[in-house]
Amino acid sequence: MSKLAYASEKIKAPSLVSLQTLFEGRMDQVNEKILKSLECSVPLIQDIAGYLIKQGGKRLRPLLTLASAELCGYKGHRHVGLASAVEFIHTATLLHDDVVDESALRRGAATANTIWNNTASVLVGDFLFSRAFQLMVEDGSLDVLKVLSQASATIAEGEVMQLASARNLNLREENYLAVIGAKTACLFEAATHVGALVADASSEKCEALRKFGFNLGMAFQLTDDALDYCATGESLGKHVGDDFAEGKVTLPILITYHAATEIEKAFIKKCFVDLTQEPQDLTRMIKLIHDKGALQAVSAKAQSYLNNARECLKIFEETSLKSTLLETLDFVLVRNH
């Protein structure tokens, strides 16, 4: 159901509040673990890492680790450390992404590379990766280590894949989906998978939660791609059109380009390949995206992944936690930030 449909039927739109409330106490433990792991003798590391961590954000990935473990009946504390490791991996990738993309704003605040510099951001990102691996080793499970280390490697592969395909308007949809699968969805996948692993869940449940995370992550990134051309800057936490300004060829752009006339294709090439953009070009691009139905197509693709994720949860008994996770799926599609 779309945001407009929720509004017209006067139904409360899904949100993350239920999931955040359910794990508020556990997330306090995760935050304590994160802050303790940031302790070191280098002030610059504490300044940059602390700046990022304190910005907060949705913390969806560590929440999913906690939720997956407890959905499988886990009653211990190992998932707290692993949720912290997942958040460190995510934060490290954000630091590296902002340097590569030359981004100036994230979550409504200046990026670390803007406040400090690119070199410091990259090195602190490396520090956060090392802390994540220390937490994995501390957990002591080779299975967990294998999943999270593979995710870290896959994310790096995704970054290189994205770099290699930058400004390529002829990129096939399946190749683009492979990029976001590596860059984004694999960490969601790892987050839910390790939650099941610490609970010693059956292989069927581990596989179900692994697939659940992957499909959720794909939908999350596709929605994020669409938001850049329909959300307001205040709600999104970045400037609308940041992807446009950086010449990022996302799925809405690929769909629009393949449906465009020759004149329209020349305009898109000017904006994304030549990066010769005029102040009015963003408005024209947004209209073109809407006219070609690209946002509806991306939303339908995201919905397909969410349907797959919903199917993955059918193996689990009906509980309030399962209902909360289903609401989280609905939130991914209708979110505006």
Rank of each mutant, 00 (worst) to 15 (best):
D28H: 15
R167M: 04
A5Y: 15
L187I: 06
F129K: 00
E173I: 15
P43H: 12
C312L: 04
L16K: 03
H239L: 13
E262M: 11
A104M: 10
T324C: 15
A69F: 10
H193G: 03
R26N: 09
G293T: 05
L288W: 03
L66M: 01
T261R: 03
G108E: 01
E24Q: 14
H258E: 14
D228S: 03
S320K: 14
L148G: 10
L254E: 02
L171T: 07
S235T: 13
K287V: 11
F220W: 02
S203M: 11
V334L: 04
L142Q: 14
G76N: 14
E173R: 15
K248I: 01
D139T: 05
L254H: 08
Q29H: 12
R78P: 02
G237R: 04
L321G: 01
A110D: 13
Q134W: 02
E159Y: 00
Y74M: 12
A92F: 11
I255A: 07
L236F: 08
L275R: 13
I48L: 13
A153N: 11
A132F: 01
A85M: 05
L4D: 11
C72Y: 01
L63T: 01
M1S: 09
R107W: 11
M1P: 09
A120E: 12
N175D: 15
G213D: 01
F127C: 07
A302I: 04
T250Q: 07
T119F: 07
F129H: 02
G56F: 08
V298M: 06
T328M: 11
I155S: 09
Y305F: 15
L22I: 08
N117G: 00
L52I: 13
I180C: 07
T256M: 12
N175P: 00
L38V: 03
L44M: 14
M136V: 13
S68Y: 02
G217S: 07
L148Y: 08
A120F: 10
K3I: 13
R26W: 08
Q303T: 12
L64P: 10
T154P: 03
E159L: 06
L251S: 04
C40V: 07
E9N: 15
C186K: 09
A110C: 13
K75S: 14
Q221S: 01
A112P: 05
L254S: 03
K301D: 07
T65I: 04
L94M: 04
R131P: 05
A7I: 10
L145T: 07
A208S: 11
R61D: 05
S121M: 05
G158H: 05
H77Q: 15
E234K: 15
K287L: 13
L19G: 03
G195Q: 02
K314R: 14
S149E: 04
E24I: 04
V240W: 12
G247C: 05
I53K: 01
S18E: 14
S235R: 11
A120H: 14
A153P: 06
C72H: 06
Y305Q: 00
T261H: 00
K58T: 01
S304E: 09
F244R: 04
S103R: 06
